[in-house]
């Protein structure tokens, strides 16, 4: 019943313990819980919507990738840190 397993929880890409509750549209913590909890089957979600996000690998995954990401922290989406660009050196 933790937020981290809830369909509405979208983690921050860098610190997955903190994210946003897409239902309440406010900050949420992965270990919290609430009465709006709604568990989701990631495999089913990917089948329906095409992709989900693996926060461990920092990548979107597709149906064919499911096995590779078993036991990873996979969410329906992710929120980008808006200051990420200030933390990285320019590169190519």
């Amino acid at each position: 019943m933790r937020c981290r397993f809830c369909r509405y929880y979208l983690p921050n890409d860098i610190c997955a313990h903190v994210g946003i509750c897409s239902l309440r549209e406010k900050i949420a913590f992965s270990e919290d819980s609430c009465d709006k909890y709604s568990e989701i089957d990631i495999a089913e979600f990917i089948k329906k919507f095409g992709r989900a996000y693996c926060v461990d690998c920092k990548t979107w995954i597709y149906e064919a990738d499911m096995e590779e990401h078993r036991n990873h922290r996979v969410y329906l989406g992710v929120i980008e840190d808006e200051f990420l660009f200030e933390e990285l050196f320019a590169a190519d």
Binding site: N12, I14, C15, G19, I20, I27, A28, I79, F83
Partner: peptide
């Protein structure tokens, strides 16, 4: 009222 999009700043 902090934004979860700014967590890097707080970390």
């Amino acid at each position: 009222d902090i934004s979860p999009r700014r967590i890097s700043r707080y970390m």
